[in-house]
Each structure stands twice: as structure tokens, then as C-alpha cells.
Design a binder for these strands. Structure first.
Lengths: 191, 191
DNA sequence: CTTATCTTTCAGTAACTACTGAAAGGTCAT
DNA sequence: ATGACCTTTCAGTAGTTACTGAAAGATAAG
């Protein structure tokens, strides 16, 4: 009798792989949910990413136990974000989908979009608020009021913060993988 | 007749200030919602931050048109996060609340908490998945299967990405304001 | 102890988001 | 044109989250 432990039969390997993938998919879905991405979309993305293999609508439906409608809409949304791609196979009627393989690129895409949709409008609002409270709008005496000064101070602190954060984002977005790894190298050296 | 444009009467200043603050509060609430923080909590925080003035439960209720119960629970949650503080005033029965003034510190607190709650579990899951698919678990022949290799590859790319991201977070968290401004200076010089 | 003042809790409900499944819309082969 | 095959849309519904208001709990003063 050999000393090695018993290994699973080859037939079980597929099962084990699926279990591991499902584990990842579930966790990814949970994380997505707390970041404002709905669970199903995150799970679909996780499935495409983790298998590394193009899947068609029916594959997704069966694997995640969701309806055709839901699959269709979620897949489209993921395509709109740009983190998965449609894939036609010659001679086949149905469409397949695959995830980007480069995590850094995916992150860049998401970061760019969220910056545009969520940070930029806030920055614009802050500018608008400051304008409403400027001396030239309110007059000299009024603008000296303590409450006005307090709010103006808070507005500019926040503006400074967001401007800087935006610049960091910009680095990530503009440089994707190479940029990010450079960022990290620089950071780790500097501290 | 003087050349200057007509300025609002002093009585209007308060109104103008409120309007500007409300604008900021609304935008902040909208942003919060898309980041997985509920709108009301984000609005309460925005109110405390932007006024720079401690407010009691009733102030919050009136200003944002929400119920006592909602105020109470949301204020507690914000305290739990650590981005607002309770404030007792000598001789007064009721409690006041104020926001941290340092945006960098607030960001650090939030980043630390989200890393702990959301990134760390994913990293742990990834490790677990890899273990399930290692040669020592699956056996030599099985682990060579293409599908297994694909999934393992995706798992390690993701792990690398998240490890690096975690390190960046760590910098922010550990150094708060001074750290962040240094980070930014370093970054802007390096690119 | 009683009253006044303020806070917290939580069952019930309102509001919202996500999902289904059936129907309509395309596209290609014959 | 007709049928086979696949995708998209969307009204209706299930499921979830957020909110209210009334009741209970705390704390201090009288």
C-alpha cells in the first residue's frame, strides 16, 4: 500500500471545482451588494470571471438559478459597464459572454465610471454652494457671519479632499495595470 | 446711487445659507445611496458636517423631515461608525451630535471598516478556494485539468489585486491626514 | 415616589428594488 | 413566406429595506 493519501476519483474533480467556484461566486455577490451593485449582477460577473470560460444565457440561468429575463438584463448591464463582453462563435446561433481577465483593467473601468457618476456631481454641487455664500453674492457684512464662515470652511475642506481623491483615481484610470503597480511600488518605497 | 449691485437684506442671509446647506445635504445623500449607505444616514451626516454646529435629535428631525425613531437609530449607527460624536452640554438634558471635522480622518475610518467587513472575507474565501483546488488536495492528474488551471489562475490574479489594494488602504488608514497628503504628494511627483 | 424630559426600541407598514415568465421581437435557414 | 431558435422587454409580483409612531425605558429634578 502506497504512503500517499487517497485522492478523489477523477469524476469528483469536476464536482470539487464547481464547489470552489460556487463559494467564490457567493462571496463576490455578497460583497457587490454592500457596494451598491446588486447581488445577481455581481454573481454573474463572478461566474464569468472565475470559470474563465465563455458562458451562454442558459448556462448562467442554470448555474445561478435565475430566470431568462433576469439573465438577459443583468448581462446587458454588465456589458454596458464594459467589464464583460459578448462573444459570437462561428456557426453558432446563441451568444456567449466572457469576463475581462485583467482585474486591474476591470477596476479602472469601474473606478472611472463611479467617479464620473458620483464624485463629479458632488464636486459641482460644492462649487455651486460656495458661490451662493461668497462675499460677492451675500455682501460683506453678511458673509462675515459665523455660521456662513463655518459652512464655507467645511465646503472647502471637502472640496480639497475630493479633488485629491479624484487625482488619485485619475492615475488609476489613466494607467490601468502598469499605473497601479507603479503607484504601489512608489507608495511602498515612500513609507 | 452706488454702483454695487443690491445685496440681500441681512434677514435673507439665513435663508440663503440654509438653501446652500440643503443642496449639499441632498447631493451627499444621493451619493451615499449609491455607495451602499442609506440616504437618510448620509443626509444626517451631511447636515452635521456642513453646519459645523452640534445639533440635537429634534433639530435633525425638523430639518430633514424624518421621525424620531429614524433619527435615533441613524444617529446611533453614525456614532457606531465613529464619524459623528455625542456631545453633552452642561446643564442641558438633551444630547447633541457633531460630525468629525477632518475629512481625511472620516475617510480613513470608513475605509478601515469597509476593508475589514468586505475585503478581508473575500480574501479569505479566495485562499479557501485555492486550497480546495491544490495538487495536494486534488491529486496530480486531476489538478492538471485545464478548467482547474483556469480557475486557479483567476483566483491568484484576484488575490494579487486585492492584496495590493489592501496595502494601499493600509497606508491611508494608518496615516490619516498626514499620511494621505504625503501619499498624494508622492504620487503627483512620480507621474 | 412622582413628574418632566429626553432616548430607545420595535411591530407594523410604506416604499422600493429585484425577479419572473410570458409575449413580442429578431434573425437565419429552408 | 414559414418555422426554428434565440434575445429582449415589461407588467405584475415577490422580497427587501427603510421609516413611522406609539410604547417602554432612562435619568434627573421636585
Amino acid at each position: 500500500m502506497p504512503l500517499t493519501l487517497e485522492k478523489p476519483a477523477l469524476g469528483d474533480v469536476h464536482q470539487q471545482l464547481r464547489t470552489a467556484q460556487d463559494l467564490f461566486i457567493r462571496r463576490w455577490g455578497e460583497m457587490g451588494a454592500t457596494w451598491g451593485i446588486n447581488r445577481t449582477m455581481a454573481e454573474i460577473h463572478a461566474l464569468l470571471y472565475i470559470t474563465g470560460t465563455p458562458q451562454c444565457t442558459d448556462d448562467v440561468m442554470e448555474r445561478l438559478h435565475i430566470s431568462r429575463g433576469n439573465s438577459s438584463m443583468s448581462l446587458r448591464a454588465l456589458c454596458d459597464w464594459g467589464i464583460i463582453r459578448r462573444l459570437h462563435r462561428r456557426g453558432e446561433r446563441r451568444e456567449y459572454f466572457e469576463s475581462l481577465g485583467d482585474v486591474w483593467e476591470m477596476f479602472s473601468i469601474i473606478a472611472a465610471e463611479r467617479k464620473r457618476r458620483e464624485m463629479d456631481p458632488v464636486l459641482e454641487t460644492i462649487k455651486q454652494c460656495r458661490q451662493m455664500l461668497e462675499e460677492s453674492t451675500l455682501g460683506k457684512v453678511a458673509s462675515r457671519q459665523e455660521t456662513v464662515q463655518l459652512t464655507l470652511g467645511r465646503l472647502s475642506s471637502m472640496e480639497e479632499f475630493m479633488t485629491v481623491t479624484n487625482k488619485i483615481f485619475q492615475q488609476f484610470i489613466g494607467n490601468a495595470k502598469s499605473g497601479l503597480t507603479r503607484v504601489v511600488k512608489v507608495l511602498l518605497k515612500a513609507f
